[in-house]
């Protein structure tokens, strides 16, 4: 594992609408790994990801991405970001969407067909995105982030609503990308995806409860099931907080 983490967050405080959404959290995401950001919906996962990508106004703290402050101009071509809601043009076809984003990113046009293949959308390449299902749209959105092969991918719930087979394939793709040196931060609220990650960040109510490998988390809690291990971690954290 590379010594230098891809993402370093220190004392990050984010307020939205007068409420603290992230409570001075600190964390690191090791380079060339698949790091799972797990927690119930509404716990601040998306806000944390937005802060890392540099589109979130933060109150205080620092976020360093690939050695530079989050949101730096030079990072724009080096961080791929997929929002939870598929952000692609509904009135363009799959290929037209990808061609446009490829031009904006300055990527070779051949990459368009390559990423359509990666997300398993070959049969739908000519279809207008608005006529596709939610899961298919999510795949087009994911394909967009893969276009320029950025060293860091920040993916907000990329596998929601997908066919189990496709979900397995995508996690396989993530693992292959990490093996080739890409860092992936992938959020999920499904525990069975935790085992697919090299590294886990457990989040609840705007706090990071644990940063561990799946094996480390099992050892620490004495639970074999990662879902149970997460429950133990929450319980322990709450007793400590009550004290």
């Amino acid at each position: 594992m590379a010594a230098e983490p891809a993402i370093v967050v220190r004392d990050l405080l984010v307020r939205r609408g007068g409420v603290d959404v992230l409570h001075r959290i600190s964390l690191e995401v090791p380079a060339a790994t698949v790091t799972g950001l797990l927690g119930p919906s509404g716990c601040g996962k998306s806000t944390l990801m937005r802060s890392i990508v540099g589109v979130q106004v933060v109150a205080s703290g620092t976020v360093t991405v690939l050695g530079e402050p989050a949101g730096s101009r030079s990072l724009r071509a080096r961080v791929g970001y997929v929002t939870q809601a598929p952000s692609v043009y509904g009135d363009l076809s799959v290929r037209e969407n990808l061609r446009y984003f490829a031009t904006v990113l300055g990527t070779a046009p051949e990459r368009v067909d390559a990423v359509i293949e990666t997300v398993g959308m070959n049969a739908f390449a000519g279809r207008v995105v608005g006529s596709l299902s939610g899961g298919q749209r999510a795949r087009v959105s994911l394909a967009t982030a893969l276009l320029n092969e950025p060293p860091l991918l920040v993916l907000d719930e990329p596998t929601v609503g997908l066919d189990p087979l496709l979900r397995r394939d995508l996690w396989g793709t993530f693992a292959a990308l990490a093996a080739a040196g890409t860092t992936l931060l992938v959020s999920s609220h499904v525990m069975d995806e935790a085992d697919r990650c090299n590294h886990l960040l457990l989040m609840r109510d705007g706090h990071i409860l644990a940063a561990e490998t799946p094996r480390g988390l099992r050892a620490q809690t004495g639970e074999d099931d990662l879902g149970e291990a997460f429950v133990r971690t929450i319980e322990r954290w709450e007793t400590e907080a009550a004290r």
Partner: peptide, 13 residues
Amino acid sequence: TTGTLERLMAMPL
């Protein structure tokens, strides 16, 4: 509202 602006703003555009 569809997030395409946010996506573009996170790209070298």
